[in-house]
Amino acid sequence: MLKLNSVSVGYTSKMVVKDISFEVEQGQMICLIGPNGSGKTTLLKAIANIKEFEGDIKYNEVHINSMYRKEIGKIMAMITQNSHTYFPFSVFDTVMNGRYVYMDGLFKGPSKQDKVIVEQALERVGMLEFRKRNISTLSGGQLQRVHLAKLLAQEPEIILLDEPTNHLDLKYQIETLEFIKELTIKEHKISIVVLHDLNLVQRYADKVVMLSEGDDFLIGDTKDVLTNEKLNEFYHLDIKDWMVKTLEMWRK
C-alpha cells in the first residue's frame, strides 16, 4: 500500500500542493486531475521521489526517501511527459534501459534473462517487430508503446504516468488506458495517472485526487469527486453541462 501523509510539495517560493494525505491499494488506479498549474505533475514527481517534498510518503510502511535510488527503481516506474532523446537509440535498446536496476556489476551488460524480458515487454505492447527501428522514426503512438514496454521491463509495483494520452489519437488514448487498467487489476499494481480528459477519468479511475489552483484538494471515489458542483468549483466551468450537451449532439 502506498500512503501519503500530510505531504506538501512545490517550489522554494511557493508550495503548490499543501498537506495532502491519501492511500492507494494494490489493484487500484488513481487519477490526479485539476486545472493547469494545480500541481498534478509536481505531486506525481514527489511520489516518484524525483522532487523534494515535506511529509511522509511510504510504500508498505517504508519511507521512500530513505531508500536507495535503485531500490526505488525496482518499486516504481514512471513515464514522464518529455523523455525524448536526440540520440538514435533502437527500440530494443530503449526498452533495455528499463532493466537498469536489475543489471549489477561493473562493465556488465544485459543478461539473457534481461533480453527475454525486454522481448516479452515489446511483444505485449505489439512492438516486437519494430525492435531494431530507430525510435526517432516512430509515430507518437508507437513511441508511447515503447515507453510502456520500458515501464513493463522495469517490473514495477507502482506505475506513475504523467499525461500518458498526450499527443495520441482517441484510439491510442483508449488503448493505453485499457492496457494500464488491465495491468493494474491482473497484476495487482498501483497506478497513479495524471489525466486531463475527464471522460477517461470517469471511465477508468477507481479513485480521484482533484487539485485546485490554490491549496484546496478533494479525494474520493470517482463518482463522489466528479460531481457537478465540485467540478464547477475546481475548474470554474460547468463541465458536466458542456459534456451532456456534447453527448446530445452525438445522439442526433
Binding site: 514527481k45 516518484a48 521521489n49 524525483i50 535510488r69 535503485k70 526505488i72 527503481g73 525496482k74 516504481m76 516506474a77 514512471m78 514522464t80 518529455n82 523523455s83 525524448h84 532523446t85 536526440y86 540520440f87 537509440f89 535498446d93 530503449t94 533495455m96 534501459n97 528499463g98 537498469y100 536496476v101 522495469q154 506513475l160
Partner: peptide, 15 residues
C-alpha cells in the same frame, strides 16, 4: 544510456 533520455527519466529508471 539512461541519461541520454534526460535526467528525470534516468532518475525514474533508478539511476
Amino acid at each position: 544510456d539512461a541519461l541520454s533520455f534526460g535526467e528525470e527519466q534516468a532518475l525514474t529508471l533508478g539511476v
